[in-house]
Design a protein around this nucleic acid. Structure first.
Lengths: 106, 106
DNA sequence: TATTTGCGCAACCGTTCAATTGCACATATA
DNA sequence: TATATGTGCAATTGAACGGTTGCGCAAATA
C-alpha cells in the first residue's frame, strides 16, 4: 500500500478535506456533511491523510477533531521547486530581494 | 478515467520521468533505460503525462522526443498557494517586498 | 438505566491502476 | 530487398482504490 503525500492529494475529495481543515479543525461527521459520500467514506480519506501526517487528531470526549498539518505539504512544494523557475521569475525576484533586505528579516 | 495533474504526479515513476525530461527531451527507449520496468510500462506513463499535457512530443523520423511542459504544473502550485502561508513567512515577505519594489520589476 | 450519538473497523464490490507480454507498423540500415 | 530498430496499441493480470453496508463500542443524554 503506497502512502505518500503525492498519492494522498491525488484524490479531489481529499484535497477538499484539506482545504476545509485548513480553515479550522472539524469532526468526521461535520466534514461528511460537505460531501455526498457517507461518513465512513470520508473517514477512510481522513485515515489516509492521517497516515501520511497531513492531518492530526485531537480527541475530546467521543468527538475527534481533525487538524490540518501543513508540514507534510512542504514535500510537494519542495519537489515543485526546481520546476518553478521554468514558468515564473517570481521566485528569482524573491531571492534577489531577500538578499538585499536581510536586515529587515524578523 | 480520471486524468488530472494531481493524479499524474501521484506516481513516483512519473515524477522521475518529469525530472528527467526537465533536463532535456528524450525518447521512450532512452527514458526506459533509467528504470527497471519495461519500455512499454514507461510508454504508458508517458501517455498519461501527455494526456494531461505535462509532456509534449516532437517526432523526428521514427523517434519521438518527449518534452517537459511546465505549464500544467502551475495548477499544483496554484493549489498549494493558500497553504504556503501556513508553513512559512517567506511568501508574505515576498508580497511585502514586491510592493515596495514595484519600480524595479522588469 | 435506557437510548441516542459519534466514531472506527471489517467485509464486500465494482473500477481503476501499473505492469507484462505479444503484436503490428513504419523507419532506418545492411 | 531483407533485417534490425523505435514505437504505439491491445489483452491480460494482480493489486490498490473508493465506496457502501453493517457492526461494536464508548460517550453523551433522556
Amino acid at each position: 500500500m503506497r502512502r505518500d503525500v503525492f498519492q494522498a492529494i491525488a484524490d479531489p475529495t481529499r484535497r477538499a478535506i484539506l482545504s476545509l481543515l485548513a480553515m479550522g479543525a472539524m469532526t468526521p461527521t461535520a466534514l461528511a456533511e460537505h460531501f455526498d459520500s457517507s461518513r465512513q467514506a470520508i473517514s477512510k480519506h481522513i485515515q489516509i491523510l492521517t497516515e501520511c501526517q497531513l492531518v492530526k487528531q485531537e480527541q475530546t470526549g467521543r468527538e475527534i477533531y481533525y487538524h490540518f498539518n501543513s508540514k507534510k505539504l512542504k514535500e510537494v512544494d519542495k519537489w515543485l521547486q526546481p520546476f518553478r523557475a521554468t514558468w515564473d521569475t517570481r521566485f528569482d525576484q524573491l531571492d534577489a530581494l531577500l538578499k538585499n533586505n536581510k536586515n529587515k528579516k524578523s
